[in-house]
Structure formats: C-alpha cells, structure tokens
Amino acid sequence: MTLAGGPVIPNFGSGSSCEVTNGWFCTDWVRQHWSDTLQPALVQHIELTVIAVAAGLAIAFALALAGFRYRLLDPPIGFVSDFLYTIPSLALFQILLPVTGISVLTVEIALVSYTLLILYRNMIEGLRAVPAEIVDVARGSGFTRIQTFTRVELPLALPTILAGLRIATVSTVSIATVASFVVAKGLGAPIFTALEQDVFKTEIFAAGGMVVALALVADGLLVLLQRALTPWTRSGRPA
C-alpha cells in the first residue's frame, strides 16, 4: 500500500490527473462510474437492508408475541438474541459459509440475527409498558383478548417498537457493508475493490459517504412514519 504524497503507481484508471495521483476525491471518477458501479451498489445495499429489516421485524414480532403471552419464554428468547448479537459479523459469516455457502442468504441470515435483539427487546418493553389500568378498562369494556392486543396494546407499544426499528435499520445499513466479504453486493463491494487497488480514496469516500447518507435518509423516513402512525405522542403534555 502507498500513502498519499509518496510516489504513485498509476494504477487508478486512465482518466484525469486526480485519478492518476489518487487525489482525495475525484468528482470526474464519481460521475463516470455512478451508473456502472455506485448506483447498482446503492440499490443492492438498499435491498440487503430492506430484506434484513423486514425479515427481522417479522421474526421478532412472532417471538415477541410468544414472549409477551408466555412470560416463561421471554428469558430464553432474550438470551438467544443477546447471544446472536454478540457474535462478531465476520465470525458469523465463517460459521454460516459451510452451511449456506457464498450467497446472499448467508449475508441476510447474519444481518437478520443482528436486528433481532433490538427489535425483540423493544417490542417486549413496549408491550409491557402499557399501563395495567388501560388494559383493565379494555377488558372490562368487552374487548376480546385479540381486540385488546390489536387495538390497545400494540398501538400503545408502537412508539417504542418504532424507536427500535430506527436503531435496527441504521445499524443494518452500516453492517451490510461487511456483506462484501461474502458476496460482491452492496456499497461494501466498491470499498472492498478500492482497498484491494492500493486504497483508491475516491471510491472509498464515495461509497462510504453513500452508506452514511443512506442511514440518515432511512432514519429520516422512519421518523416521518413514526409521526404519521403515532399522532397522540405529539399532543402537548404527557398523559
């Protein structure tokens, strides 16, 4: 590897002098490679994230239903999701590779397992935080068990669940970069290539910047969703 300022091996494309000298950020390169490199990587990155978060949400919800309804199940579920969360992602890829091979599935399994902890915990916390007297009134007014859950407990847990969803999404956007250790997909792929090509700075900064921007945009969209779904949380004094 060479450091900036040292004699440069012109291995960075045949374009502008910025590329030849591996300058900090070559806008020409970005313009040229937007449609063949960066944009596809961005789309893949979004796909990886959306699939992982959606699957994580579905699995965490099923687990939370079980853990909420049957308290005895909560500690084991919590333990397993804690455990999954603590395995370093690279190690998890190594464990999965012999089973699921060099595939998107390997990546998604790893990504999903990282979302589970935060999503599950927040769902359980949110559901448990619903005041007992409100559930009491719902039952006393003739809500069935299912109606109590769907019309009272779940909506009231929504702010906490959505807060968890925000954290899970932002961290998935960031962790998905590591997916390129397994398959050349997502914004990690151009970063990986650039590292191999004697640290081509422009590509690293462009792709890295897009990861950060994607995380911020995703978070912003979720904030809007949160506002739309929970109008009562912005209604003046707390209850």
């Binding site: 005041p131 007297e133 409100i134 009491d136 009134v137 719902a138 006393g140 007014s141 009272v152 909506p155 009231l156 929504l158 929970t230 009562w232 209850a239």
Partner: peptide, 11 residues
C-alpha cells in the same frame, strides 16, 4: 365501567 385512574385510551 369507570375507574379512578380513568384509563382513557391515550392513542
């Protein structure tokens, strides 16, 4: 059914 804590549905 009315209780002291009222239990209005906050949402």
């Amino acid at each position: 059914y009315v209780i002291q804590q009222v239990g209005l549905f906050p949402h």
